[in-house]
Nucleic acid binder design. Structure first.
Lengths: 191, 191
DNA sequence: TACCTGTGTTCACTATAGTGAACACGAGAA
DNA sequence: TTCTCGTGTTCACTATAGTGAACACAGGTA
């Protein structure tokens, strides 16, 4: 939705109501908002208050944010990427990094495979606020440091942490380590 | 926040404004909402319209939903789970499933390791609407079917799909397959 | 001590949200 | 053809959002 105007939520409310086969009368009963008001809102004739929209969301049993963000039609995804299509990020002396997730997932949910050589370190700068990383140790042992917290995790282990602070993955052993990494961003819907 | 009352957003707006060291005057200029109104909103003396809160969110450069959901203080996570602490889900003749993510991540982001025997199938019922699965094939080859779409994915490959329809992972080969699986749910904030 | 400034609050007003009631319209039945 | 019913829209009203201006208060300075 455009960022130049407040969200037009009338159409969204109408769509959700229709999807649930509800009349204005029924939604009025469920939500505590008058039928007249609902009609005006759906026609974008008025600019309702937060409390009113919250009541409608409750009546529809949906999240307030589902109404506000515009109720975009979700198309079900199906996307597969072969091994030879993944992107490889290598730096001299650094770990071997394969990007598995497609470009359209960037800054939403990113998936990587990392291979850390014996006695190597991968240090990253803080990501966007609220971003989280989830690591599965496939082989070897790694030590993860995020801020003042750290843990050594062996094969078959799992670690998750906020990565909006400087964070480091180290392989202090004499064997290579392989790690599956997922990075999840807090989404911004309209900035 | 309580689901019995509309969201009290005044305190949230005030906190964000203070965090950014802004005065009411400054926010009024940036947002186009009067200082008087801002004061009333922050004091929970009025129930602002959606458009007004949207203007404030823009002025603060935050998501509308950040204000509405209550601006909870985020504590940075750090959680590690050793291999011997993961939960194993096995059924007779079924795949070997290890749950890596901790219980508190249930229905948010769930992480699994799957091992499918030669010529075996894992069929799942539809999950909650909007839920997505992300598979990394660590070894072997699997065929993923979601609704009418399918793909055979070899070692090192990746596949993602909506799993709010019946979906199946098959290993039609004579070798075992190992798959890393992430399940991401669309969050409900207050239902 | 008095004055000034910055910041937040309240007043008195206008504009608009929100409602109960009445109206408009289309479809189906008699 | 007329009537009835269900559903959505609009009217005329009250309640409240939203504002410019004035006020209140605290801290700093002369």
């Amino acid at each position: 939705m455009s960022t130049d105007n407040p969200p037009l939520i009338g159409a969204t409310i109408k769509k959700i109501r229709k999807d649930q086969s509800l009349t204005l009368d029924t939604l009025a009963e469920r939500s505590g908002v008058s039928k007249a008001m609902l009609s005006q809102i759906e026609s974008e004739k008025v600019n309702p208050t937060i409390a009113t929209v919250w009541k409608i969301a409750r009546g529809l049993e949906v999240e307030l944010n589902d109404i506000i963000k515009g109720g975009k039609e979700r198309v079900r995804k199906f996307r597969s990427i072969n091994a030879d299509e993944t992107t490889v990020l290598d730096t001299a002396g650094g770990p071997h990094i394969e990007v598995l997730s497609p470009i359209e997932m960037a800054e939403d949910l990113e998936v990587y495979l990392l291979e850390l050589s014996p006695n190597s370190v991968l240090t990253s700068q803080p990501h966007a606020p609220g971003t989280e990383e989830y690591l599965t140790v496939l082989s070897g042992t790694v030590t993860v440091i995020a801020g003042e917290k750290s843990a050594a995790v062996e094969q078959g282990g799992f670690v998750m942490y906020n990565c909006d602070i400087t964070h480091t993955i180290r392989n202090d052993t004499a064997a290579a380590a392989r790690v599956h990494m997922v990075v999840r961003f807090l989404k911004k819907n309209w900035v």
